[in-house]
Design a protein around this nucleic acid. Structure first.
Length: 320
DNA sequence: CGAATTTGACCTGCGC
DNA sequence: GCGCAGGTCAAATTCG
């Protein structure tokens, strides 16, 4: 999918007032910049009276504000596109899921209802949440963990045989089992960061692609994310609500695996939280934008020009 | 030596 | 009720 068609991340920052042309090749631009900047700002200083200068600054401020507004709109559009696409995906998967469920299976009920994830098109979630009070009294141990189930797909390096998914939390392994439908063993983890945290995690390699780890999270953490407290920014994973979003660094660059398999019908509040109103989502998108901005040589050049220009301007005004 | 992991035994739910 | 399969427990083992 071509995400670049949604939003043009190479932002046109309208830096023409500084005469740093975006068409100038980067390397040439950087060397030319020094030559170009001095006369530009000398002209800028000498030609403008203080009133004009104030006006220009106000104009600049307005322009920046306008761009800020545009960015916000772009972000909104992007989020809406994401939501639309997501709902389409849910429709598609629910149709497929029904087909699969119609097929007679000798497998256990629980397996067919929420564990048909072998082909990476998973319908996970709360299909069992309709259990009656009678049932829940029969199995009190399960009632807590059945409410929040999410999946994360994490690509690992080829030689990596460990079943560890680095999502920032501390996990204690308490079991491993080879399941019938997948020759790769499934590892069972409990969250050990907080003693009372009920969250469990199952990690198993995908039967289709053994380099992909499928992590199934059950329950919700009753404590803040460890990386938020300890080393913010050191961990490149975050959790969007109960939906994990895992970033792993590969040789070709960061791979981001989002769990989009939450059923639309269940947990409507969750679904809406995935939208533009979720601060985590906005933070994540802003980080993505910031990342793409800093990678853009034109933006970097413009930033250098703007900063050096301001400094030059300030030095001049101090001297005068 | 304490914490973490491994692994076989046991428990539980489900289909027949 | 029996067998199967997934999930959990806990003693043994490994690791830092």
């Amino acid at each position: 999918m071509d995400y670049s068609s949604w939003v043009d991340t190479s932002l046109d920052l309208n830096i023409n007032s500084l005469r740093v042309k975006s068409e100038v090749p980067v390397d040439a631009g950087r060397s030319e910049m020094a030559k170009e900047l001095k006369p530009t700002f000398m002209d800028f200083q000498t030609k403008l009276s203080s009133k004009e200068e104030t006006g220009a600054l106000v104009e600049e401020l307005n322009r920046v504000g306008e761009e800020n507004r545009k960015l916000t709109e772009m972000l909104t559009v992007m989020c809406e596109s994401y939501n639309a696409l997501r709902s389409q995906l849910m429709d598609f998967m629910s149709k497929n899921g029904e087909k699969e469920r119609l097929a007679p299976s000798k497998k256990r009920k629980s397996e067919s209802s929420h564990n048909n994830n072998d082909n990476n098109i998973a319908m996970n979630g709360n299909s069992e949440s309709s259990s009656t009070d009678e049932e829940s009294s029969k199995k009190p141990r399960e009632e807590v963990i059945k409410d929040k189930i999410s999946k994360a797909y994490v690509r690992t390096e080829a030689g990596d045989t460990s079943l560890t998914v680095k999502d920032g939390y501390q996990w204690r392994k308490y079991g491993q089992k080879v399941t019938r439908d997948n020759p790769c063993p499934r590892a069972y983890f409990k969250c050990s960061f907080a003693p009372s945290c009920p969250v469990k995690k199952k990690v198993q390699r995908s039967i289709d692609d053994q380099s992909v780890l499928v992590a199934t999270y059950e329950g919700e953490h009753n404590h803040p994310h460890p990386s938020m407290e300890a080393t913010p920014g050191s961990n490149r994973s975050l959790t969007l609500g109960s939906v994990p979003c895992t970033a792993s660094l590969a040789s070709s660059g960061p791979t981001i695996t989002l769990d989009l398999t939450k059923p639309k019908s269940s947990n409507d509040d969750k679904s809406s939280r995935l939208g533009k109103d979720t601060p985590e989502v906005q933070k994540f998108l802003v980080e993505q934008m910031a990342s793409s901005l800093t990678k853009d040589p034109n933006f970097t050049a413009a930033l250098v020009a703007a900063i050096s220009g301001r400094m030059f301007q300030q030095n001049k005004s101090e001297k005068w």
